[in-house]
């Protein structure tokens, strides 16, 4: 399915995650964050910029360990920025799919 976010049409899955990270823009990020009740500030953007850069290099969004260890953002801060599930919410706002298991 697709939907319109700040004038851009993007493809999303049933839970609102973008299915093509290539459709992501900064404006889309602002709208996705609003859906999660988050107003983006500079500290959020530091996380999002890292996820976008690392995701582009590796083809998949980084996990929390990678965001903390390589991105340099402590886990406590991730929880303050993306309350109730930083791994999922940061990935969603950054235009990547939900981190998943196998079954």
């Amino acid at each position: 399915m697709n939907k319109e976010l700040s004038g851009t049409t993007v493809d999303v899955d049933a839970e609102g995650y973008l299915t093509d990270p290539g459709q992501w823009t900064k404006e889309v990020a602002v709208e996705l964050a609003k859906e999660e009740g988050i107003e983006l500030n500079d500290r959020h953007w530091k996380v999002i910029d890292f996820i976008r850069k690392d995701g582009a290099e590796n083809g998949t969004a980084p996990n929390v360990r990678r965001i903390t260890k390589i991105g340099g953002v402590p886990t406590k801060e991730l929880y303050e920025l993306f309350p109730g599930g930083p791994a999922k919410k940061a990935a969603k706002v950054s235009g990547y799919g939900k981190p998943h298991g196998c079954l």
Partner: peptide, 9 residues
Amino acid sequence: TPLSGAFTK
């Protein structure tokens, strides 16, 4: 579990 459930797919 840190995932969204025991089954995620």
